[in-house]
């Protein structure tokens, strides 16, 4: 085994942490803890980006790390907390489909994305290329979370954490996207979050709950 630099080891550790947090979010039943887990995921993402910036001397990555930190550790969780408080769904516990089964599907997804990432990461020349598989696994797991959840807020958190995974994929495969693109995405996510917040109120006004199965019906009175 070739020795990899120390900072790359820390990045690997943070990548593993990111994967673990994705699984924790998949298994979490309580909405409030879900938001906190999302904030922790953002924190590890910002840390790993900062370490990539330090290790590869890419100053523009410091900006994205800072942006991630402010946006995903403070602003978005704060917005979500406020939404949860206003909608009064703080103690919402979701009746998920069997958690161990979801976890097993999650493992299959991880194996799938690891296999998928191996040929791609062989082409990349970055020191962090091996974490690409983890980034893809995070995206897949967030997908799974959006599919298995029924309530609106966990679905939105799944969407946001998918963006985390994509961001991590960009960092690990190509040392990040150009700053303009990153700013654009950050703004998109923020605005999307605000709009979805308005949606939540509309949904609840219409159906008296945030359960999205009410949206499956096309006509009224069936």
């Amino acid at each position: 085994m070739t020795a990899i630099p120390f900072y790359a080891q820390i990045i690997n550790l943070l990548a593993a942490l990111l994967l673990l947090l994705s699984f924790a979010m998949l298994a979490q039943r309580r909405v409030l803890s879900l938001v906190n887990l999302f904030a922790m995921q953002g924190l590890s993402l910002a840390l790993s980006t900062a370490i990539v910036a330090y290790g590869t001397a890419q100053p523009h990555l410091y900006w994205s790390a800072g942006l991630t930190f402010v946006l995903k550790v403070f602003l978005l969780p704060w917005l979500l907390h406020r939404l949860i408080r206003q909608l009064d769904v703080r103690w919402d516990v979701e009746g998920l489909i069997n958690i161990p089964t979801t976890m097993l599907i999650g493992i299959v997804l991880v194996v799938f994305s690891f296999n998928l990432a191996v040929p791609i990461s062989e082409l990349a020349s970055t020191v962090t290329r091996s974490t690409l598989g983890i980034a893809m696994a995070c995206v897949m797991l967030s997908f799974l979370m959006m599919i298995t959840r029924r309530k609106a807020i966990p679905q939105v958190i799944g969407f946001l954490s998918m963006e985390n995974g994509l961001f991590f994929a960009a960092t690990s495969a190509t040392y990040g996207m150009p700053l303009v693109v990153e700013l654009g995405i950050a703004l998109d996510v923020l605005v999307g979050m605000l709009i979805l917040g308005v949606f939540f109120f509309q949904i609840r006004e219409q159906f008296d709950s945030l359960d999205l199965k009410h949206l499956e019906k096309l006509k009224e009175g069936e």
């Binding site: 994967l19 673990l20 699984f23 976890m103 493992i107 690891f114 091996s130 983890i134």
Partner: peptide, 14 residues
């Protein structure tokens, strides 16, 4: 799950 993840991460990251 944790044990399998550990093994997979080991295979991926070496």
């Amino acid at each position: 799950l944790l044990a399998v993840l550990g093994m997979l991460v080991n295979l991926l990251l070496g």
